[in-house]
Design a protein around this nucleic acid. Structure first.
Lengths: 211, 211
DNA sequence: TTATACAAACAGACGTGAATGTATATTTTC
DNA sequence: GAAAATATACATTCACGTCTGTTTGTATAA
């Protein structure tokens, strides 16, 4: 089997990515061999090396298939929050949680990134990009919180950095916990969880009281 | 160099574990070879294979050096919370965060477990134990929350499982975020962070209102 | 008390398998 | 006919496990 048409070639590329996603999730990234991926896709390593450079390249491609929705969410956050920044943030947080609960591909990639990824010397480029995304996300949270304080939606004594960190930790922690155990209805409970956390921020104690 | 005394042998064992901890943290578990560990400890693979069976065995030993304090904390939670369960939980959560902020070894092992561990087929035994610990932790949180509700410290409408999950996600998320970036003072902010979250629980909206 | 036997605590060499990257062969489409 | 899209074959590297060698603490007995 050789030299398919352009569309067939693109199809095998997708088959390879799907197979890689499956293998990574089942056996972890490090323990997955290129032959595993090729076999699982019904091809050989020849096809793999035609479409990709190495395992790290495949992994990046697998991740990029879901990076777009998350990036979109980030730019959502960056958009003008209007006169209800906290409501805006609430919707966005719920949206993120629901996207995870609903989209199988997002679940796969997050499970791989969370649990199946070794911090080896490959993947350095990817990790630095992740860190940058994380940083941008935190600073945008800070901006939105500042706007909420200006609108009187949150008390002024909230420490900006720690508040953003807490929000991010809470959402990220929920995602990880649910990915690892799936023992509660994330989609249904997302609004209540987010509201409960934001209620804590609204009534937060004054940090200056903590010596 | 051979046949040291009992104490010297135990010393090399500890050197090997320290070296493994360093290598795992620097290069990831999967990318660390047994020769890396031996060299970094100033020994050879002969010493490694004398003290341990394989890499997974080493990793378990590395983890067990900090599992004891965490287990102690879990049993703290299991003890009688008295007439102030929420205050008890508050102290315990702060204690966990501070132990991470203060103990370098805990930081290392958690960083390895969080970011440097591939979910390969080895480490299965370890992972199942982790899951069991996670489950026990969640059920203990449920017990403490139930007690807090009985004492009138928390509203009765809190869904037990989701509340425990949220608490665990928040603490775990904070630990992960801080491990990855260390860009805020975890030790100093721990009480405020925990109090802010618990304030959210105290004033949480009624979940039955969420269709 | 001392000689001796044994086993502990390693170091170093060896064989093996497996995964990687590359080079080449083979078709088929354009 | 040229190049794209794969399969196949090959060489190399590399980590693992095992085996053996060596030295020395230690127990036992004479």
């Amino acid at each position: 089997m050789v030299r398919r048409t352009k569309e067939e070639a693109e199809a095998t590329r997708i088959q390879l990515l799907d197979a890689a996603e499956r293998c990574f999730r089942e056996k972890g990234v490090a323990s997955t061999t290129l032959d595993d991926i090729a076999k699982s896709a019904g091809h050989t390593r020849g096809a793999v090396y035609w479409h990709f450079e190495n395992k790290a390249d495949i992994f990046e491609a697998v991740c990029e298939r879901v990076s777009t929705p998350m990036q979109a969410m980030l730019s959502d956050l960056a958009a003008d929050p209007g006169n209800d920044p906290l409501g805006y943030l609430r919707n966005d947080a719920i949206h993120v949680l629901r996207m995870l609960a609903e989209c199988e591909r997002v679940q796969s990639v997050f499970e791989i990134k969370f649990c199946k990824l070794d911090g080896g010397p490959d993947f350095d480029r990817l990790r630095s990009r992740e860190l940058e995304t994380h940083t941008r996300c935190l600073s945008m949270l800070e901006v939105v919180f500042a706007a909420a304080v200006r609108q009187g939606q949150l008390p002024a004594h909230l420490p900006p950095k720690e508040t953003a960190e807490a929000m991010h930790a809470f959402i990220g922690g929920l995602m990880r916990s649910w990915i690892e155990r799936r023992d509660f209805d994330l989609r249904a409970r997302a609004p209540w969880l987010v509201d409960t956390f934001l209620t804590g921020l609204r009534n937060a104690p004054d940090p200056t009281a903590y010596a």
